[in-house]
Each structure stands twice: as structure tokens, then as C-alpha cells.
Design a protein around this nucleic acid. Structure first.
Lengths: 205, 205
DNA sequence: GTCTATATCCTGATAGAC
DNA sequence: GTCTATCAGGATATAGAC
């Protein structure tokens, strides 16, 4: 449990790695090759270290995963909590808002969220993350239900199904969106809300 | 390359396993624990066999993966090819049709398609599958573009983005849909086409 | 902070008896 | 068709020198 400096050393001396950098590179590798498909040797090589030097910076492979999943879950929790706390406005407006903000979080924290969405429950850490995630999904479904009950969203589709499909579309972002690419986050979140709420059909304005 | 019977033996004698059964159980396990997270020992245990007995039925772990990915890709290829060959009707109708039929294939071959959608390119087999899949995605994007060009689908959104989001929603089915569940395939495909083409907003009919 | 060396276990796959 | 036994390599993680 000895703590290496959390802030990168400036100037003279060997650079070393702060925990945040190791975590970031680890998440990237996990996403490229899968968590189980990535060995600590792979990660050490990626960082230009030996395996044992890597273990100086990080207690275990599992710990890296847990940190990443926590990052994603914490961010999503905040977004959903904020949306539910909005006393003003309609359920419809809260739903639109949470969709938009979910897209922003997915993009801002894309690597960590990608990892979260791929977790299968192979360990206690993964199971805990799945439980937390299920709670968030339930809250999102509740927001869709509220909008239907309010009558501002079509009532001929089961709200749980709508929720799954809607956030399935949102979550599919992680499969292709890259922040270095040419598509801005606002373009994506606008496209999603336009498709989902207005539909693709052309119709008189 | 000795061939075990492809059809299950009826009556007397030990049952053995035909290749199709082994493949089906393998795919299920791969989806529950991830391909890399599943060992041949796990699969043998699931089948109630020793590892070496399993290797009598199957040449390698990679071969199981290749067969599963081929199943998924073959089915998707047929659907997309059929949709493109429809000379009659508008591009809009072809697009609606390919969405509906993609949902049917995803549901009918859910385990194999799930595996396909999770492939990361960790081996030559996975890379080949990704290449084939990219070709299909390109064809789907072309169908969205055609509908936009035709003017039957809104033109204020980039067609490649629309395609990614639309089929992102479709593909997200594999994350939760179970054929044993209460939701029928037609309900799902109807919900998707309704959301995507008509939108969730309530509006005058 | 990084290294070499090592412990221990698990992996995919094979040999050969029954 | 299934088994026990085995192999070579790779996995996570640790010990201890520098």
C-alpha cells in the first residue's frame, strides 16, 4: 500500500507513472483487446515497463477494472440523479434532458463507459458493477414511464421496451464514437433526440 | 478430421454429442462469460465431459468461434442481400424492410449474433469476421443514404450517423432479448420501426 | 522505481489406454 | 467416445537486488 506520487513529477529524474496515467492506458488496452484478452504483460509492454515494475504502481488487475467501472458508474449516477431532481418542467423535458446528458457522459468518459457496458459478471467486482448498473437502468425506465403517464410521449409502446431501445441506441455510441473524429458530441446528441422523439419520416412541419 | 455422427444417436448406447449441440452450448457459455473468459475446461464441465473428450468432438476453441461467427454473418448477409435485390418499391420501403428483417435475424440467431457483435479482433478469425461485418455495415449505410436521396427520410441528419444509430438500436437487442421471455419478436420490431420512423412524440394522426 | 528470477496456477492441446 | 496423464506456454502476482 505504499503510495507512489499521484501527480506527475516535473523536470529532472525518471518520470515514473502516476496512477491516473496507468489507469487510462489500461482502460484503452482493455477496450481494444477485452479485459480477459489483456494480460498484465501486455499492459506493461504498452507502458514500456516490466511486469513487476507495473505492480509497483498498481495492486492488481482487478483493482484497475474496479476503478474504471467506478468512474463510469459515478458519472452516470450523477447525470441520472440530477435529471430526477429537476422539479421544474415536464417528465418529457426531463427525459430529453437525461438522454442528452447521457450522450455527453458517454462521450466524455467513453473508455470507462465502454468497459462498463461490456462487463459480463465474471468476478465479484463485475457483479457489483452490474448490480449498480441495473439500478440506473431501472431509474431510466421510470423516467420513460413518467413521460408516457404524462401523455407527452406515445402510449402505444411498453415503456420498459422503449427505455431499453432508447438507451440501447445511446449506449451503441461506445462502439464507434471517437473523440478525435470529426463528429462533435452535440451533433450526435442532436441526431439521437431528433430520431427518437421526432422520427426519421419526413412530414409537414 | 474424423467425423463424429452429426445426428444424435437414438436409443441404446451412450449419447455422445453431435457437433451442433456442442457448438450451441459453447456459444451460450461464450456469451455468458466472454470468449476469452471461457476455457475449454469450462465448456467440458458444462457438457459433463473431460477436456480431452471434448477435443474428440471439436478441433479447437478457435474453430468453435469461427463457426459461430460464420453463422451470424451468413444470416445477416442473406437479409441485406435480399433487401438490396428488391427492385420494387422505394428505398424507404427497403430500409424499413431491412430493419424489420434484421431484428428477426438477431432474435432467431441471437447467441451467434451476440458473439459477433462482441468480437474485438484478437485473432485472425476475429479480424476476418470484423472485415466481413464492416462490409455489411457499409451496405446498410448505403440504404439509409438512398432513402435520404429519395427524399422519403429526413435530410437534416448525416446518413452514416443515422445508420450507426439506427442499427446500434437494433443491435442493442442482443444485450437483453431472450426468446424465452414474454416479448414477442414482432412487438420488438414494431417498436423499433415506430420509434425510429415515427418518433416518440405525440402528434395529431 | 525498475529490474531479474521465481512461485503457482491455468491454458489450449495431445498421447495413449480402455 | 471417454478417460488419465502430460506438455509447453502463459497467467497473476511476489521476492529481493539495485
Amino acid at each position: 500500500m505504499s503510495e507512489p506520487a499521484a501527480t506527475p513529477r516535473r523536470g529532472r529524474g525518471r518520470p515514473g507513472y502516476d496512477q491516473a496515467t496507468v489507469l487510462r492506458r489500461a482502460i484503452d488496452l482493455f477496450n481494444r483487446k477485452g479485459f480477459d484478452g489483456t494480460s498484465m504483460g501486455d499492459l506493461a509492454e504498452e507502458l514500456g515497463l516490466s511486469k513487476s515494475a507495473l505492480y509497483y504502481h498498481v495492486p492488481s488487475k482487478t483493482h484497475l477494472l474496479a476503478q474504471a467501472l467506478d468512474e463510469a458508474l459515478d458519472e452516470l449516477t450523477v447525470v441520472i440523479q440530477q435529471a430526477q431532481d429537476e422539479a421544474t418542467g415536464t417528465a418529457y423535458e426531463r427525459l430529453r434532458s437525461v438522454v442528452r446528458q447521457s450522450v455527453e457522459v458517454l462521450i466524455a468518459h467513453q473508455p470507462a463507459v465502454t468497459l462498463l457496458l461490456r462487463v459480463r459478471g465474471n468476478s465479484e467486482v463485475e457483479l457489483a458493477a452490474l448490480r449498480r448498473r441495473r439500478g440506473l437502468d431501472t431509474q431510466l425506465a421510470g423516467m420513460v414511464r413518467a413521460a408516457e403517464a404524462e401523455g407527452t410521449v406515445r402510449r402505444d409502446l411498453p415503456p420498459d421496451l422503449v427505455s431499453r431501445l432508447l438507451f440501447g441506441m445511446v449506449n451503441s455510441l461506445v462502439e464507434w464514437y471517437r473523440s478525435e473524429g470529426e463528429v462533435h458530441a452535440s451533433v450526435v446528441s442532436n441526431a439521437i433526440t431528433t430520431i427518437v422523439f421526432d422520427g426519421l419520416d419526413v412530414r409537414p412541419a
